[in-house]
């Protein structure tokens, strides 16, 4: 069984990303479970989505030390989620920074070197400027599908028609940019 923890800040689009990924995994014949808690945390708080797949999955949620991969949409969220990572696990993360209220008001400081610290601690860390890539493509929102490209590559999911899955999931006028974002993530 493979366990993936996706972490980000409310509104970053973890839901769409896991929707496309889980469709692919169902097509590949895996048992898939996905869990997320939403509600109050949407309002600018940390949002975690958990995805597990394998021959048979029981619990939908991941305990500390269970995650094979952490996908972080934001730099310090990777740091916060670290206790969930299994020893020997991997991190795929965006170098994007979103400041929380205590940081904005100057009460707490933002460790901008979090990616470097994680590289030293974990080793297997792929840092990808997904937000910047998305903005260059013309829409910052496709950050999520760019990260999906990087994750799909890391999982070795190459027997999947990703372009078709993307086309089936996103609105018609967003297909091309999402496919480009996926490719940029895969090729990074």
């Amino acid at each position: 069984m493979t366990s993936i923890l996706l972490t980000g800040v409310g509104g970053q689009g973890t839901i769409l990303m896991t929707k496309i990924l889980s469709k692919a995994l169902v097509e590949l014949g895996y048992d898939v479970k996905m869990s997320e808690i939403h509600g109050m945390s949407q309002r600018g708080g940390t949002v975690n989505t958990q995805l597990r797949f394998g021959e048979k999955v029981y619990a939908p949620n991941i305990s500390e030390g269970d995650a094979d991969i952490i996908v972080a949409f934001e730099k310090v969220e990777a740091l916060r989620a670290l206790p969930y990572l299994k020893k020997g696990g991997r991190i795929v993360m965006d170098s994007h920074e979103i400041y929380s209220m205590p940081v904005l008001t100057g009460e707490e400081s933002y460790p901008s070197d979090a990616d470097e610290l994680l590289k030293k601690t974990v080793g297997n860390v792929l840092v990808i400027p997904a937000s910047k890539i998305a903005e260059k493509l013309g829409n910052g929102k496709v950050q999520n599908v760019c990260l999906l490209g990087a994750l799909a590559k890391a999982l070795g999911l190459d027997h999947v028609d990703w372009n078709k899955l993307i086309a089936d999931t996103v609105p018609a006028k967003m297909v091309e940019i999402n496919q480009a974002a996926f490719k940029a993530g895969w090729d990074y």
Binding site: V9, G10, M40, S41, Q42, R43, G44, G45, T46, E64, G65, D66, V76, E77, L79, R80, L82, P83, Y84, L85, K86, K87, S100, M101, P102, V103, E108, S109, Y110, P111, D113, A114, L117, L118, K120, T121, V122
Partner: peptide, 17 residues
Amino acid sequence: ENDTYESPAQAPNRPPV
């Protein structure tokens, strides 16, 4: 129980706002 990592730094709080 799986082994995990010690955090190398403190992540600033992110309360919902």
